Deep mutational scan, measured.
Amino acid sequence: PEEVRRLVEELYRKGVSPEQVKKILKKQGIDEREIEKVLRRIG
């Protein structure tokens, strides 16, 4: 979803590592598979 992409990109631009991005967003209840999809697209 758009909102997940925005959150991931925001953290990524701040220099947060992909592993940390995953941890942070998982705590917020976001599906890990969604996060990984976005990270793959960015990375």
Results as ranks from 00 to 15, higher is better:
Ile35Val: 07
Gly43Ser: 14
Tyr12Asn: 03
Gln20Trp: 13
Tyr12Trp: 10
Glu36Met: 05
Arg41Ile: 15
Gly43Ala: 15
Arg13Gln: 07
Gln28Cys: 04
Val21Leu: 11
Lys23Gly: 08
Ser17Glu: 09
Glu19Pro: 07
Pro1Ala: 11
Val38Phe: 05
Gly15Phe: 04
Glu32Gly: 05
Ser17Leu: 08
Asp31Trp: 03
Gly15Thr: 02
Ile42Glu: 03
Leu11Val: 01
Leu39Ser: 02
Arg41Phe: 15
Val4His: 02
Arg41Ala: 15
Ile30Thr: 02
Glu34Asn: 04
Lys26Gln: 09
Glu10Ser: 12
Ile30Gly: 01
Ile35Cys: 01
Tyr12Lys: 04
Lys23Leu: 14
Gly43Trp: 04
Glu2Pro: 07
Glu3Gly: 09
Leu7Met: 11
Gly43Pro: 10
Ile30Asn: 02
Glu2Leu: 13
Tyr12Ser: 05
Leu11Gln: 02
Arg40Asn: 15
Gly29Asp: 03
Glu10Asp: 10
Pro18Tyr: 10
Ser17Gln: 08
Leu7Asp: 01
Pro1Gln: 12
Arg33Phe: 06
Lys37Ala: 13
Lys22Val: 14
Arg33Asn: 13
Glu34Arg: 04
Glu19Asp: 13
Lys14Gln: 10
Leu39Cys: 03
Arg40Asp: 15
Glu9Asp: 06
Gly15Arg: 05
Glu19Val: 08
Val4Ile: 14
Ile24Leu: 12
Glu9Gln: 11
Ile30Gln: 02
Lys27Ile: 10
Arg41Thr: 15
Tyr12Leu: 14
Lys22Ser: 05
Tyr12Asp: 02
Arg5Pro: 03
Tyr12Arg: 09
Val8His: 01
Gln20Arg: 09
Tyr12Ala: 04
Ser17Asp: 09
Glu19Lys: 10
Val16Tyr: 14
Lys37Pro: 02
Arg13Cys: 06
Leu39Tyr: 02
Lys14Leu: 13
Lys26Ser: 13
Glu10Gln: 13
Leu11Cys: 02
Val8Glu: 00
Glu19Gln: 11
Ile35Asn: 00
Lys37Arg: 13
Leu25Asp: 00
Val4Lys: 01
Leu25Phe: 03
Lys23Ile: 14
Arg33Met: 08
Glu32Leu: 05
Glu36Cys: 06
Glu3Ile: 11
Ile24Pro: 00
